[in-house]
C-alpha cells in the first residue's frame, strides 16, 4: 500500500472517530472515540516522519488528558443525564451559530495561502527530535520559556486548589 492510500484510509478513520465523538450518546464511548481520534492523529504525524510529535501527542493527550476526562465521566451518574430536552429556540440558535462558524472556517481556509513545501527542498529530518529541539531552544527560546512559566503558574494554581483548607475534614 502506498503512502497516499494509507493517508486516505487514516483520514477517513480520523473523521469517522471524530464524528462519533459528538454523535454517540454514551459519554464513555465519546471519550474512547476521542482517544481513537488522537491515535489516528499520531499516525498522521508518523506519516509525516515526525515520530517525536506522534509519541508526545500520544503521551500527553491520549495518556494523560483523556484519562482525566475518563475519570470525570466515570464519576458522573450517567442515568440522570440521559434525556436533556432543549427548547426550540435553543435548537434554532445552536443551528444558526453552528452554520455561521462552519461558514467562517470554510471561508478562512479558502482564503489561506499556505506555502506548500516543494518536494525537492523537503528535508526528511524536519520532524526529528534533534531538529525540533534546536528549533525550540535556539530560534524560539523566549516563547518556549514563557510557555514554561505558564505551565509553572498552572501547576502552582493546581497545588493551591488541591490544598487542604484549615478546618477541612480529611479522610
Amino acid at each position: 500500500m502506498s503512502a497516499d492510500k494509507i493517508w486516505y484510509l487514516l483520514t477517513a478513520l480520523t473523521i469517522v472517530f471524530a464524528l462519533a465523538v459528538i454523535l454517540v450518546r454514551n459519554p464513555m464511548y465519546s471519550v474512547l472515540c476521542l482517544v481513537l481520534t488522537f491515535l489516528c492523529l499520531s499516525c498522521h504525524y508518523i506519516l509525516l516522519n515526525a515520530q517525536f510529535l506522534a509519541v508526545v501527542n500520544l503521551i500527553v493527550y491520549a495518556g494523560a488528558i483523556m484519562v482525566l476526562f475518563l475519570f470525570v465521566v466515570m464519576f458522573l451518574n450517567l442515568r440522570e443525564y440521559k434525556e436533556e430536552t432543549k427548547s426550540t429556540l435553543q435548537r434554532v440558535a445552536a443551528f444558526v451559530v453552528g452554520i455561521a462558524i462552519l461558514g467562517a472556517i470554510v471561508m478562512a481556509v479558502r482564503r489561506l495561502q499556505y506555502p506548500m513545501p516543494s518536494a525537492e527542498k523537503f528535508d526528511i529530518r524536519t520532524g526529528y527530535v534533534e531538529v525540533l529541539g534546536e528549533t525550540l531552544f535556539l530560534d524560539y527560546l523566549l516563547p518556549f520559556e514563557l510557555v514554561t512559566i505558564l505551565f509553572f503558574v498552572a501547576m502552582v494554581g493546581a497545588v493551591m486548589l488541591g490544598k487542604r483548607e484549615k478546618g477541612e475534614r480529611h479522610f
Binding site: 482517544v35 515520530q51 517525536f52 509519541v55 508526545v56 500520544l58 503521551i59 491520549a62 495518556g63 494523560a64 484519562v67 475518563l70 466515570m74 526529528y128 527530535v129
Partner: peptide, 19 residues
C-alpha cells in the same frame, strides 16, 4: 529514534485497560 518514549507512551495507555 524515539524508542524509550514509545515505551513510555504505551505505558501511559496501559491505564485504559484497567479503567
Amino acid at each position: 529514534n524515539i524508542g524509550i518514549l514509545w515505551v513510555f507512551g504505551i505505558v501511559s495507555l496501559g491505564v485504559y485497560g484497567v479503567m
